[in-house]
Amino acid sequence: MLDFHKNHKLLVGTAMFGFFVLSILVALMPAFQIQQTQPLPTMEGFSEEELNGLHIYVQENCMSCHTQQVRNIEMDNSWGKRPSIPSDYYFSKQRQDLWRQSPSLLGSERTGPDLTNAGQRQPGMEWHLLHLYNPRIVVKESIMPSYPWLFELKEESKIKDTDYLVAVPQKFIHASNKKVVASKKALDLVAYLQSLKQAEMPQNPAVGFIPSSKKIEPRNNGGDAVLPDGEKLYMNNCAACHQAEGGGLAGAFPSLIGSPIINDENPETLIRIILEGYDARPEFGVMPGFQETLSDEEVAAIANHERSNWGNTAGAVTLDEVKEIRSFVNSLKQ
C-alpha cells in the first residue's frame, strides 16, 4: 500500500499534505491567534505624518540594521523598561497598502541600536535631522548611511520661512554657499522615530526580564554611596548630543567643557536640567528630561562624570542631593 517509490501521486500528495498540515499547526494557527491581540489602553494610533514616516522607514529598509524588539533577557533592558509584548505592535504592524504587507519591524540584525524606545531615549528633532543627514556629524564612529536625498540644499536667499533649516556644520556640506533644508519626508521620518516609545503597562505588569546571574561589581566613584559607572551611563544617555569628549556640536548642542552650570559649586541647576530637560537657549536644540529613565544613583554618577572630566573640576555630587532635588521637582509638578 505504501509504495511511495512507485506511486508518484501518493508520494507527492503525501509530502504536500504533510507539509501543509504542519504549516497549519506551526504557522497559520499561531498567526491567526496572535493577530487577535488588542492594543494597550495607553497606546495611541499614528498621526498622518508618523504613518508616512513609517512607510519611509520601510522604503529605506531600516529594518535590515535596526531591531524593534526588547527581548525578555536582562541584557536588553538597556533598550526598554520592559520586554516587548504582542500589543506593542498593534498599530505599527498593519498592512501598508494593496501592494505592500505589514512591515517586518522586529528585525534580525542589530547592526545599529534597537529603536523600540528611540523616541524616549532621543527625542530631539534637531539631533535626528543631523543624524539622518550624516550620522557622523553626531556619532563619529557610526557606520550608518547618510540620507542626503531626504534633504535639499538651498542658497540662503531662496530659503522660505516655512523651510526647516538643519544646522549642519559647513565641513559636511559639499556646496559651501548652501544651507541644508529638511524635506517633508525627513520630517515625517523623524516624527515616526520620535513616536517610538514603549507604552505604559496597566497595573502590575506580568512580563519581566529573565534576570542576569552575573554579579555587577560595584565601583566607588568617590561619592559617599556606591554609584554605578558614570562614564558608561554618560556614553549611553548623553554622548549622542554632547559627544564623548563633552565638546558638544556648534550650533546644535552646547559644550560641557568649562560650562558654568556644570562647574557650579551648587549642583542644583545641573541636576534639575538632567531631570527636567532644558529649552532656554534658542540657538541650541531642545534637551529632553531623564526623570523617568534614570535613577537617583545614575543621575549622580552622570553628574560626577561631567564635573570631573575634560578639565572640569567641580566637587562630587552626593546621592542625597539628587534625592532632595528630585522630590523638590516632583513637588513642583503637583
Binding site: I34, Q35, S102
Partner: peptide
C-alpha cells in the same frame, strides 16, 4: 495577507 497583521506577520 489574512493573518499577517500585528505579530501574525512575525510568526509567518
Amino acid at each position: 495577507p489574512m493573518y499577517q497583521d500585528g505579530l501574525g506577520e512575525t510568526v509567518i
